[in-house]
């Protein structure tokens, strides 16, 4: 519980600091212009203080009550998110892959909080989260590409008209996710309930990218996004089910 409180505070703080860092570009995008800073509801200074305050509180909780390594992972995640991924959005389309790193660290943090060590098995969870995020965020980037273009964000769907590269990224990452997601069963961490469930889920996620490849449309991007949102909680439920059955 303390791990979740500390992690939640760090994540919330990083979110607030991201609002602070992007409040000017948020004003340019329909999706974000009603956020608290662009609307003047909260001043950028207050958002900055709030973000720093709760991030430090969260990191302190992890340091004092959990262990050093969990706190260090939380710090690395926050720094990657704020100082590498956020500015990279205006520089290169690879920001999606870079942003997927801090997005994949939380299960490592949970593992380390429980065990105190960064075991090889924990990296499988990292890899699942890393690969899952690519089709998910490319679908979002396609759906919001007009907004991103206005904000000068170098998202891949903004930089190309035909979507060939975006589609390649979606197909390859969702394809690689299938074997990666099955590794917990190969190594005996999880059993066959998980194996078959993860296989069906992975194939569903992979196939849901096909309509977008065939017809690069908003509707098909929305379908992929929906399946991506379905994939992760169901995979998590499968992990729990596999353990309790």
């Amino acid at each position: 519980m303390i791990t979740l409180i500390g992690t939640g505070l760090v994540s919330s703080g990083a979110g607030a600091l991201n609002h602070f860092a992007e409040h000017e570009t948020d004003l340019l995008m329909n999706r974000t212009q009603s956020r608290p800073i662009p609307t003047g509801f909260i001043s950028s200074k207050n958002a900055l203080n709030f973000g720093i305050g709760i991030t430090l509180l969260g990191v302190s909780i992890l340091f004092i009550f959990i262990n050093d390594l969990t706190a260090i992972l939380a710090i690395i995640t926050t720094l990657l998110y704020l100082f590498i991924y956020t500015p990279l959005k205006k520089i290169t389309w690879l920001n999606t892959s870079v942003g997927a790193i801090p997005g994949a660290i939380p299960p490592l943090g949970g593992w380390v909080a429980a065990t105190g060590v960064l075991a090889p098995e924990a990296w499988i969870l990292f890899a699942i989260m890393f690969f899952w995020q690519h089709p998910h965020f490319y679908a979002i980037a396609f759906m919001c590409k007009d907004d991103y273009e206005r904000a000068n964000f170098k998202m891949l769907p903004v930089l190309e008209v035909d979507g060939k590269r975006t589609n390649r990224q979606i197909i390859w990452h969702s394809l690689l996710l299938i074997p990666v997601s099955l590794v917990p069963s190969y190594i005996g961490l999880l059993g066959m309930t998980y194996f078959w469930g993860a296989l069906v889920l992975g194939l569903t996620y992979f196939i849901s990218g096909f309509p977008l490849v065939k017809n690069y449309s908003l509707e098909n991007a929305r379908l992929l996004l929906k399946v991506s949102i379905f994939y992760l909680p169901v995979l998590f439920i499968l992990i729990i089910l596999d353990k309790v059955i």
Binding site: T3, L4, T7, G8, S11, S12, G13, G15, A16, N18, H19, P36, I37, I42, A47, F50, G51, I54, P106, P107, L108, G109, G110, W111, V112, A113, A114, T115, A119, E121, A122, L125, M129, L189, L232, P233, F236, I239, I240, K243
Partner: peptide, 24 residues
């Protein structure tokens, strides 16, 4: 400001990592 949707996903995946680590 706390980006509740992202924070929720982070908490769920942290809890999962915690559970599997502790279990193993």
């Amino acid at each position: 400001l706390t980006k509740p949707n992202i924070t929720f996903l982070i908490l769920i995946s942290t809890a999962l990592g915690y559970y599997l680590g502790a279990e193993l």
